[in-house]
Write a protein that binds this DNA or RNA. Sequence first.
DNA 1: CTTGACCATGACGTTGACGTCAACGTTTAC
DNA 2: GTAAACGTTGACGTCAACGTCATGGTCAAG
Lengths: 126, 126
Amino acid sequence: MRIGELARRAGVSTRALRYYEQQGLIVARRSANGYREYSEADLRLVTEIRSLLTVGFTLEDAKPFVACLQAGHESGASCPESVAVYRRKLAEIDDEIRALLVRRAEVAGQLTAACPGCVLRKQEVS
Amino acid sequence: MRIGELARRAGVSTRALRYYEQQGLIVARRSANGYREYSEADLRLVTEIRSLLTVGFTLEDAKPFVACLQAGHESGASCPESVAVYRRKLAEIDDEIRALLVRRAEVAGQLTAACPGCVLRKQEVS
DNA sequence: CTTGACCATGACGTTGACGTCAACGTTTAC
DNA sequence: GTAAACGTTGACGTCAACGTCATGGTCAAG
């Protein structure tokens, strides 16, 4: 299939697909007229990338997963490199959450100081 | 004092001070030779901005606080506009925390699926 | 007089994942 | 044959808060 069809089926823009290729994630083969030609496997790659991006991964993070799929594994996460990325990402997320909790406490403290009662609602972040 | 001294005393770069002025936060008066001339009150403004930025506020968010101080209030948070920003920011932070918790759960789930036992540590994010 | 420290404005670079033209070739449908 | 729909490669714009030159004026010390 060509780039437009893949874009529709994957729910992304053609621009995104060209960008992924530019970043070295999904390199399409070219037909005689220069058009990019994709396979069904490529659709799988794109959906993998998309699900990773929506969870906060970068394209760089997604590379091991794509490589894993291209190597023939059923899951993009079946390779040790992918697992390493998962572990690192999990640690990053935990760091961010901790930082946000600190910020929340600081801001809530300031708000309480400036406007007592403004934040008294017992509605804690679960 | 001139921009270099204020920068040193406030712990920021001169570039940052010019940027704040460009964004309309701290407009310095000019001496005859065109140099920016700051007062002690301006130092207070800069420290207010810095403390807000470090807590995750944008320069836009900081404007009400600066205006509040310039209006003569002892605290930058003494004005209703500032309080409104505090409340909005608190809500934003809560949203971010919730989103991150969701992401954490998703990533942890994927990691567990790909590598059972990798995330079993009972070390929850406090 | 000149070096060096300070100041000024202006403008491009940074980061990530594309959006949005521009300018042009290809294919398909009528 | 021609217009619509598709494809191609650039290349600039986006968002924030500055960093980093480039180029040049100002001022005090030696």
